[in-house]
Design a protein around this nucleic acid. Structure first.
Lengths: 156, 156
DNA sequence: ATTGAAATATGTTCGTA
DNA sequence: TACGAACATATTTCAAT
C-alpha cells in the first residue's frame, strides 16, 4: 500500500470505472465491463491497483437519516479554553453519537462540528447536556442547516 | 416507495445487516448471512424492504481525495444580498466542482458551503475567481479544516 | 418472515498474448 | 495491460412452512 500522501495518476478507464462505483458501489464489475467495453478481468485488475494506491478508501451503504426521524442538522463552532487540549476535546466528542464530523479549523473557533439530531429539542439537549458539559468548552455558535442542497464527492 | 418523511422501525437483525453494509457496501449478503445466522434469502428480502422504505439511499465507493492531490478542505460562510434569491446562488454553486456541500443555514450567513481544493492557492482561486464572482455574493468567511478527526454516518 | 434448492449471474484466478 | 476460459461464489426467485 502506497502512502496516502502520494499523488497518483489515473487514466480515463479508471475514471469511468470509479464514476460507476462512486454512484453505486454494488454495480457488478461485469456490467461495468460490458458498458465500457473491456473484460471483467481487466477491471478487476485495475480495481486492485486503485485499492493499493489508496485512492479507494472503501465503500458504504448510504442511509437516509430522515427515515429514522433525524431531520435537524447543524454546524456548531466551538471555542475551547486555551488550557484545553484539542485531542482531549475530540475524544469527548467521539463519544457523542450525534456528532458526525469534527474539524480543527482556522478562524474564530477551535473546532467546527456537524451534528445530526431528531429535532430542535434533541439538538438543544445535545448542546446543553453534552457539548457544553465537555471540560474546556467555553462557548458555542450554532448554525442550523435548514436545507442541504448539494452533497457530493470530488469529481473524478 | 414510502414518502421519505415517514419514520420507520427496524429491528436488531436489520441493524446488524445495515452495520455490515454501511461499513463495506460490497460485503456479500451470504457472508453476512453466515455471520448473523439467517439465510441469504431472508437478508435479501429485508434489504428489499429497507430499500423500499427509503432508509437505504444508495451505496458509494469512497475515494480518498488526498491521493489525487486534494488536501485543503474549507468551510465558507456566504453572505448574500437580500435581492439575491437562494436557489439562483445554489445553481451557480453547483457548477463549481470544488463545492461538495451547500447548506441554507440560520445564523450569520445565508449559505454555508464545504469546498475541497488541492492547496491554499487553489482555494484562493476558487474564492476570488469563482465564489466571489457569483452575482449577489457580498462577503465570505473562510474556515480551513486543518484536520478532520471525525467522519461518520448516523449510528444504527 | 424464514428456509433450502435451483437457476442465473458475478467474482476471481490463471495461463497467455 | 488486456484477454478468455475455468472455477468458485453470490444473487435472485420460488414453493413451502
Amino acid at each position: 500500500m502506497k502512502s496516502s500522501n502520494t499523488t497518483i495518476k489515473i487514466d480515463g478507464i479508471d475514471k469511468k470505472i470509479l464514476r460507476y462505483l462512486m454512484d453505486d458501489a454494488r454495480k457488478p464489475i461485469l456490467e461495468i465491463a460490458r458498458n465500457i467495453g473491456i473484460s471483467g478481468a481487466a477491471i478487476h485488475q485495475r480495481l486492485r491497483k486503485l485499492e493499493s494506491s489508496g485512492l479507494i478508501a472503501g465503500s458504504k451503504f448510504v442511509v437516509n437519516p430522515r427515515v429514522l426521524g433525524y431531520s435537524t442538522m447543524a454546524y456548531i463552532g466551538i471555542y475551547l479554553d486555551r488550557a484545553m487540549s484539542n485531542p482531549k476535546a475530540v475524544k469527548a466528542l467521539e463519544k457523542i453519537p450525534e456528532v458526525l464530523e469534527c474539524h480543527y479549523t482556522t478562524g474564530n473557533w477551535s473546532i467546527l462540528i456537524k451534528v445530526l439530531c431528531k429535532d430542535n429539542e434533541h439538538l438543544m439537549h445535545v448542546l446543553n447536556k453534552k457539548i457544553q458539559q465537555i471540560e474546556g468548552v467555553s462557548r458555542t455558535e450554532t448554525f442550523i442547516s435548514l436545507n442541504q442542497q448539494i452533497d457530493r464527492q470530488i469529481e473524478i
